[in-house]
Amino acid sequence: MSDKSLREPDVNGGLILALSILGLLLCGPLTLVSWIMANSAIRTLDFYPSSSQRGLVKAGQIISIIGLILWILIVVVKVNERTQRMRGYDSSYGANITINGRPADPNSRHDRFMIDAVSPGRTR
């Protein structure tokens, strides 16, 4: 057997780690790319248990998963905000208005009537 067959493959552990960090900080789709690359590299490195790149690849995989989760949460929150804005929902409706010394409750029919009476230009 020659030494070439025993050499561990180069799976670009540093590149996977760098892409996962850049994806976490700058661009969400990079985390997906680095996660796919890390999964492929780990499957390759399973045949080489003493590989020196296993730590880099595993760190890149973990950071990619965290980045994907965060970017998905950000997208969901932004889509939800935009949807509420398009529907005309105003979260400040009735804010800073007191009725008989207590904060107005926009869910109460009486308080909504009072809010509309004191701020006629506002719409819900």
Rank of each mutant, 00 (worst) to 15 (best):
residue 21 I to W: 03
residue 21 I to N: 01
residue 21 I to P: 00
residue 22 L to V: 00
residue 23 G to L: 01
residue 23 G to A: 05
residue 23 G to D: 09
residue 24 L to S: 02
residue 24 L to H: 03
residue 24 L to D: 05
residue 24 L to K: 06
residue 25 L to T: 14
residue 25 L to N: 15
residue 25 L to A: 15
residue 26 L to M: 09
residue 26 L to A: 02
residue 26 L to I: 00
residue 26 L to D: 04
residue 27 C to S: 15
residue 27 C to A: 14
residue 28 G to T: 07
residue 28 G to N: 10
residue 28 G to Y: 07
residue 29 P to A: 01
residue 29 P to W: 12
residue 29 P to Q: 04
residue 29 P to M: 10
residue 30 L to N: 10
residue 31 T to S: 11
residue 31 T to R: 00
residue 31 T to V: 06
residue 31 T to H: 06
residue 31 T to G: 00
residue 32 L to V: 03
residue 33 V to T: 06
residue 33 V to N: 09
residue 34 S to P: 09
residue 34 S to C: 04
residue 35 W to R: 07
residue 35 W to P: 06
residue 36 I to Y: 00
residue 37 M to W: 05
residue 37 M to A: 02
residue 38 A to L: 09
residue 38 A to N: 01
residue 38 A to P: 04
residue 39 N to R: 15
residue 39 N to D: 15
residue 40 S to T: 11
residue 40 S to H: 07
residue 40 S to V: 05
residue 41 A to I: 00
residue 41 A to V: 04
residue 41 A to S: 01
residue 41 A to R: 02
residue 42 I to E: 12
residue 43 R to A: 12
residue 44 T to H: 05
residue 44 T to R: 02
residue 45 L to D: 08
residue 45 L to H: 05
residue 45 L to Y: 05
residue 46 D to P: 09
residue 46 D to R: 05
residue 46 D to M: 11
residue 47 F to Q: 15
residue 47 F to V: 10
residue 48 Y to F: 08
residue 48 Y to M: 00
residue 49 P to D: 01
residue 49 P to I: 05
residue 50 S to Q: 06
